[in-house]
Amino acid sequence: MNDNQQLLAYGRELLTLEINEAQKLPDRLGDDFVRACHLILNTQGKVVVSGIGKSGHIGKKIAASLASTGSPAFFMHPSEALHGDLGMIEKNDVAILISYSGQAKEFALILPTLASMEVPVIAITGRKDSPLAQAAVSVIDISIEKEACPMGLAPTCSSTNTLLMGDALAIATMRARKFSEEDFARSHPAGSLGAKLLNHVKDVMRTGARIPKIQTDATVFEAMLELSRTGLGLVVVCDSHYYIKGVFTDGDLRRLLLKNGTLKDPIEQVMITPGYQLPEQWKAVEALKALHDHNINAAPVVNNAGQLVGALNIHDLHQAGIC
């Protein structure tokens, strides 16, 4: 076996060992898991997650997952907790403490304070008879037969089990809350999902001078100038009160000229009446679907009274992250 083959063998061995250990977790879910979920769901405060070393790194991810799926949570480093950060915990909170051995010295100092405050503890540990487990209201069992590390020192299978159990808590409570895509988007406003679900047409449309519009008494030449000025691919024909009478696109212009039309033609004679319009209160993702369904690239935007308030094309939507 050459060096490359040996590396592949090492990688496959680790993955096999971690998968084998992880496959034991579903059968361990029972009353303690249900109790932990209810503690998270019913808390009037926040979920405080803590762990040291690799457990701390996994704990940060668990706290982040809980926070983004409807359970307000934050990570507290055990050492910092002993030097003032315990002040961030309140009586209505729930604590998730992570330690495979259940014997972390920092937790031995933290647990009495939590008990005096009547803060319930969820222990994620591999030792159900440890001091941490004995002090907990709920014990999540992440025990393993062996680590994938050949020396049995570096947390591998145990840290994977911790991550999986943390995800199980986060997603189980999320589903119990009936947490929706819209709820998720509110905590991820900068992400693509947030752009799709939170933005409305009025948030991304062109307004003011950027709206390509002409009056009903204009000519095709004036429409062409407005098309060139704005580059939207469409010009809106409206009256003096901004009620839309029709639309005219650059495609319409090409077809008109090919049929021997002239730039002096009145726009009312060649425009499309009334033309497709988008309500400003629609979600942006609904507007994108509507444009695709009607096989058009742009449309004017109207308010509840039917008056022109904006314009939008597919490029505008894509730039806003709606795709």
Rank of each mutant, 00 (worst) to 15 (best):
Q6T: 13
L7C: 12
T16S: 15
T16P: 09
E21S: 04
H38R: 15
L39W: 03
T43Q: 11
I52M: 14
A67P: 07
T69H: 01
S79G: 13
A81Y: 07
E90P: 06
V94S: 07
Y100F: 13
G102V: 08
A104C: 13
I110H: 05
A123N: 03
I124K: 07
D129E: 15
P131L: 06
V139I: 13
D141A: 05
S143G: 10
E147W: 01
M151H: 13
P155C: 03
S159R: 07
L164R: 02
D167C: 03
A168G: 01
I171V: 11
M174W: 00
F179P: 06
S180I: 06
S180A: 04
A185E: 09
R186C: 00
S187T: 14
H188Y: 05
A190T: 12
L193A: 01
L198I: 07
N199G: 01
G208T: 08
A209P: 00
I214D: 09
A223N: 08
M224R: 14
L225H: 12
L225R: 15
E226C: 09
S228H: 11
C238A: 15
G251A: 03
R254A: 06
T262F: 06
Q269I: 04
Q269C: 00
M271I: 00
I272L: 11
T273P: 04
P274T: 11
E280Y: 10
A284P: 08
A287P: 05
A290T: 13
N297C: 00
N297Q: 13
P300A: 06
L308C: 08
L308K: 10
A311K: 08
I314P: 00
H318A: 14
A320R: 12
